[in-house]
Design a protein around this nucleic acid. Structure first.
Lengths: 229, 229
DNA sequence: TAAACTTATAAAAAATTTATTAAAAATGCG
DNA sequence: CGCATTTTTAATAAATTTTTTATAAGTTTA
């Protein structure tokens, strides 16, 4: 199922868009500031972004530019002023479409579908450039299998990389050691899952500033681990 | 230089569009019927099509659909009636953009540029077609099938050359031995892919200063190989 | 706070993967 | 066909990763 990120500070509008998109079977998330929106967009979980121009914090121009530096996913920019639309079109920020408020929900859905279809058509099954996950200072390049922490590359082994990538791709979700084992090791955990603990430790040594107070992979005592977004 | 095809029966309009696009350094051709337009579009010589909806012979709907069956190039559809635009948008013909006449020439140029940029961004007209790959001290001449390391020619066998070229053309991407085998040997690896390892070693002997610390082809333990850019 | 339980850490042992070498097989060419 | 070259196979060595194990440290619960 395709995932759409709405970056919009007017709650009523965002909710309305969300409702209509969900009726068309899209999965929708909303962020209400530019900064949070950018971060979520760069997490790599979304297939399309609907971006309002006027936002608290970082504005839409900037967010669009920053997303484009890393991602090729379709971006639909939305503004209340027709003049702004003409202006940003000329700036060549790399947005894929521009809509002036107010617009009909069905038009939004139609455009979203069209952009998704084109993206699939062009990028298709080939190499998706969309394989960079970035959360705060952590950057994971999936095809190159490289990990950077605050710009510095850290060398990861296969299992470490797979485990970190899985957690980072599914943030804010607690996984038990058994679940992680099944996910990365492709088999049922017959008893011993101590190796998961050891791998988590090794990952933390590479990505955390202070392993005792992890910023990325949290321990949920008695349950498992969670990647904090 | 990018080439644009205008399919439009009103000569005055077509000429006007042509003039403006040429001012922006595009190469432009005009066809005035649907049938001829389709044929020219399918010739493969054009990077973008501007397609009028009302045409003698085959109409714009049909032309758009037929182009899409063969080509992914951007198509901008043009119509005098706003209603028609809404209608075709819903049809999902695969057009990339829709404009209602009359429109300003500068808007046309802006849209053309945006679509070209996106197409390049997603499909990557980059250096893939280049005959000579040069990365640091390594130079690969594809048509001559010669390899130079710091100016000195090294003799490569067929498989060695193909393997090195594939990796160098797709740098920063980790390929497993199986993938490399499929790519170079044109068949599924039924079990043994040890030959890939041996070829990598032979290539390294020729291009690396110290095969134990490869500067070009890195080993990603447990995964495969990666050409370092 | 002590007991019970869970996770973190460290180091070694085990397993896996790749590099190297050499010989065998296949291919291409005169 | 026979020779030279390329490619593949196979066996061993070397390197690296993964798992195990033991112990320490941190939480929770009664």
């Amino acid at each position: 199922m395709s995932k759409i990120l709405i970056i919009e500070d007017e709650e009523a509008i965002a909710d309305l868009e969300k409702d209509y998109l969900e009726l068309s079977d899209f999965e929708v998330a909303i962020e209400n500031t530019g900064d949070k929106g950018l971060e979520t967009a760069l997490s790599g979980k979304f297939d399309l972004v609907i971006l309002d121009l006027m936002l608290p914090g970082m504005d839409g121009f900037e967010v669009c530019k920053k997303i484009r530096e890393e991602k090729n996913i379709p971006i639909i920019m939305v503004s209340a002023k027709k003049d702004d639309i003409d202006k940003i079109r000329g700036l060549g920020l790399g947005a894929d479409d521009y809509m002036t408020k107010p617009f009909s929900p069905s038009e939004l859905v139609a455009r979203v579908k069209a952009h998704m279809a084109r993206y699939d058509r062009l990028v298709g099954s080939s190499q998706k450039m969309n394989d960079i996950i970035e959360i705060r200072g952590l950057k994971i390049d999936k095809t190159a299998r490289r990990v950077y922490v605050n710009g510095e590359e850290k060398i990861f082994t296969t299992k470490e990389f797979d485990l970190l990538t899985f957690l980072a791709e599914n943030p804010n979700h607690v996984y038990s050691k058994e679940e992680l084992f099944r996910e990365i090791w492709d088999m049922d955990s017959i008893g011993d899952i101590a190796t998961v603990t050891v791998h988590i430790k090794k990952i933390r040594e590479k990505i955390e500033f202070n392993t005792a107070k992890p910023q990325y992979i949290e321990t949920i005592w008695g349950v498992g681990y969670r990647f904090k977004i």
